[in-house]
Write a protein that binds this DNA or RNA. Structure first.
Lengths: 258, 258
DNA sequence: CGCAGTGTTGAAGCATATCAACTTGGGTGG
DNA sequence: CCACCCAAGTTGATATGCTTCAACACTGCG
C-alpha cells in the first residue's frame, strides 16, 4: 500500500452499505478465533461511515455518546488538558481500534479523542452492543478483551514514563506502533506512515518539544530508524527493541480461547 | 473502625463459608443498582479465603491464573521491573478491588501484583466467571466496568506523570485514594490507614526516594495533610484537590443503568 | 543492646525545561 | 511566478528540577 495515498485519499463515505471493518477483524482475530456468525454480528453492528479531518475531535470530553466509534483509516489520540493548558496524550489509536468502546459501560467521556490525521470512522450503537452482551457471550468477552488491551498498553506507558529514559520511552512507543500497525496490515516492510508532529509526540511522552527533537535525533544518530516526511522506517529492529526494552507480551498476540 | 486493628488483625480464614464481599458490593453499587439475584450470583463466585503477608506476590508475572483475586482487606500494587532493576508501580488496590479480573479474558499476566500490607483475599474461578458472561449480561457489564475504571485510573496517572508537578501528582494520588477508600468505608473522617513506605510511593510516582521525601514535606509544610505512622489525615481537602487538579469524574461515581 | 528498615538532610551533577533565534518547505495571494 | 507567510523542525544558552551519593536520626524488634 502506498503511504502517501493512505495519507490523503479516502473513499467517499457510503451510507447505504455496511462499512468494511477488516482492520477490526484482523485486530480481534490476533487474539482468538471468530465464528462466521460472530463476524456477521460484528459487521452488522456498524451503521454508517464518516470522515473527520485532522485536528477535529472524534469524541468530546464530557459527552455521553450513544454509540462507539471504530477507526477504519487514520490516527487518533485520547487526551486530557491540565489546568495550565498543557496537553497529555494518554493513548494512540490506529485503524481497527474501537476508540471509545469503553464509553459503552462507562457512559460519560472523561477525556477527549482527537483525529491526528484525517480519519474514516464508523459507529456501533450502544443498544446494539448491549444486545451483544445479552446474546453473544464469547464476542462480549472479546470486546471486553479489546478494552483490556488498552489498559495493558496504559500500564506499559506508565512504566516507560516512570522508569525509563526518554530515549527508551520513545523507542518503545515506536516498537509498539510498528507491531500494532503490522497486525492490521498498515506497515510496508519496515516502514509505516506516521502522521504525528514532534509537538504531538512531545504530548505523548510528556516532555518539551525541544527535548523531543533531541531524543529523536539521538535514535537517528544511533542508526536505529529514519523518520522523515511522516514516515518511519525501522533500520535496526533488534537494537531498537533492546534500547526500548520492548517485550510485546502485553499486547496479548496469541490466539487462544477467551 | 480502628486503623491499628485493621493494620494487623484478620479473622482466621474460614474455608467452609462464603467470604464476606461487602467491599466489592459497595464498590459495584457506587456505579449501578444490583438485583438481589445478581448479588447472590456474585457472592457464590468466591470460593475460599487466604491471607498474604506483606511483600508476598499475590499474582506472579508470567503466570496464567485459573481464578481472579478479590481483596477483602489490605493494600496491593501492580508493578513491573525494568531491565536495570527499577520498579514501577502501575496501580494501587484497596479492599473491594478485583485485582486481576482482567486476567480472565487476558489469560497471561504481564505484570506482578504484590501485597503492600497483609492482605486477606478470596478467589473467583474463571469457569464461574465465564458462566456469568453466559447468563448474567448486566452483571457482566458491571464486571467489565470494574476493569474499565482501572483503565480510567491508568489514564489519570499518565496525565499526572506527564504534565503535572510531582507535588500535584502526589496530591492527586492522595485525593484518589481518599475517595476510593471512602466508597468501601475504609476512611475514618478525614483520616485513612495507608501502609506504603516512601520508597514504595517513589515507585508509584517514578521518582527517587529523596525527592519523594521532599515532595511529601512540601505538602505538609503547606498544611494540606498530616502523614505519620502509616496514617494520612487530610487537613485541607479543598486546597488539596486544587493543588492536585483533582476531578473525580474519571471514577464514574454515579449510579446509572449500565 | 544492637541492628535493620525507614525517614531526613546536604551537596554535587545530570536531565529536562524554557527562551530565543534561525532554517526549511509548502501553500497562498498579489 | 515570485514574495511572503506560517507551521514544523533545529540549535544554543541558561535555568531549574530531579538524581545520586553520603551521612545521620529515629524506631521497633530480635
Amino acid at each position: 500500500m502506498s503511504m502517501s495515498a493512505m495519507k490523503i485519499v479516502f473513499r467517499t463515505p457510503v451510507q447505504s452499505e455496511t462499512p468494511l471493518i477488516e482492520a477490526l477483524l484482523l485486530n480481534i482475530e490476533s487474539h482468538d478465533i471468530l465464528q462466521d456468525s460472530e463476524k456477521d454480528a460484528l459487521k452488522s453492528l456498524f451503521v454508517k461511515e464518516d470522515i473527520f479531518s485532522e485536528g477535529k475531535d472524534l469524541v468530546v470530553q464530557g459527552s455521553r455518546p450513544a454509540y462507539s466509534t471504530l477507526i477504519l483509516e487514520g490516527f487518533a489520540a485520547r487526551y486530557k488538558i491540565t489546568a495550565d493548558g498543557l496537553r497529555q496524550i494518554t493513548a494512540l489509536h490506529v485503524p481497527g481500534d474501537f476508540i471509545d468502546l469503553h464509553a459503552f459501560p462507562l457512559r460519560l467521556m472523561d477525556h477527549g479523542i482527537v483525529a491526528l490525521s484525517a480519519c474514516r470512522v464508523t459507529f456501533a450503537d450502544h443498544g446494539a452492543l448491549k444486545r451483544v452482551t445479552e446474546n453473544l457471550p464469547h464476542l462480549t468477552r472479546l470486546l471486553w478483551l479489546h478494552t483490556l488491551i488498552d489498559g495493558a498498553i496504559h500500564r506499559e506507558w506508565i512504566v516507560s514514563m516512570g522508569r525509563k529514559s526518554k530515549k527508551a520511552h520513545l523507542a518503545h512507543l515506536i516498537c509498539e506502533l510498528y507491531v500494532r500497525l503490522g497486525i492490521v496490515r498498515r506497515t510496508d516492510g519496515t516502514s509505516f506512515y506516521f502522521p504525528l508532529t514532534q509537538m504531538e509526540m512531545a504530548d505523548v511522552l510528556g516532555i518539551s518539544i525541544v527535548h523531543m527533537n533531541r531524543t529523536i535525533q539521538s535514535l537517528r544518530k544511533d542508526g536505529l530508524l529514519v523518520w522523515i516526511n511522516h514516515t518511519i522506517t525501522i533500520v535496526d529492529w533488534p537494537r531498537l527493541q533492546e534500547v526500548a526494552e520492548f517485550d510485546p507480551t502485553y499486547l496479548n498476540l496469541s490466539i487462544e480461547p477467551r
